[in-house]
Design a binder for these strands. Structure first.
Lengths: 104, 104
DNA sequence: TTGACATATCGAAAAATCTAGATATACAAT
DNA sequence: ATTGTATATCTAGATTTTTCGATATGTCAA
């Protein structure tokens, strides 16, 4: 875990919003999972396009944001067909909260 | 509390180090408190010069780092004579850990 | 009150980040 | 095969951050 990369990822309003939205995907992304067939269970995953629409930044920007957050460990993704679904990496975020509590 | 300012403050190796050093000032700053007279009790406070020496960045840089961290809420300071002593704002950091746990 | 020292602030160059549009890639449907 | 759609990558200009040296301010000591 690279704390600095995590903090950098969190140092941006839009990225922080994305992380919060993904806590309650069904609330913030009503159309969520529209393309996800049932045999692929990826609970809470939201595709890039839906996130882009809500975040109101360009497609390339949201793509690189998501990539950055994933590299930092905050998100995980799965590609299905032409869509990439991102969701929070709750296990990592849990560890992070622990790290924060004990190390910061 | 402005989470983004906090995360920006933590997005730098040197600043992160300073925060960690200040968890155990007597360990990391052996000469700590050399100028602090006993009647001023400011436990754990370390003066700018000592921090600069350890951080190995310029005086102006360390001064602005400390100011930034204080504005973010992470540090608090007291001036005594010609020295300014900085220490962790543990109460704030505590709240922060809580925020992190519940909101991130 | 002058000189020395600690810290803060200013101004600027270099580096990093932000963000978009253009293009590439991957897949789906026809 | 071709076209359309979703996402990723590339490129580049704008903005922000980093970091320093120079200078200013505040304080102590002689």
């Amino acid at each position: 875990m690279e704390p600095i990369d995590v903090f950098k990822a969190l140092s941006n309003e839009t990225r922080l919003n994305i992380l919060e939205w993904l806590k309650e995907p069904e609330k913030h992304f009503p159309k969520q999972g529209a393309h996800l067939p049932k045999e692929v269970s990826y609970k809470g995953g939201v595709c890039v396009g839906d996130i882009q629409e809500k975040a109101k930044v360009s497609q390339s920007t949201v793509s690189s944001y998501l990539n950055m957050m994933q590299k930092a460990g905050l998100l995980e993704s799965v590609r299905h067909g032409q869509w990439t679904y991102y969701r929070r990496n709750e296990e990592f975020i849990q560890q992070l909260a622990q790290y924060f509590k004990t190390d910061i």
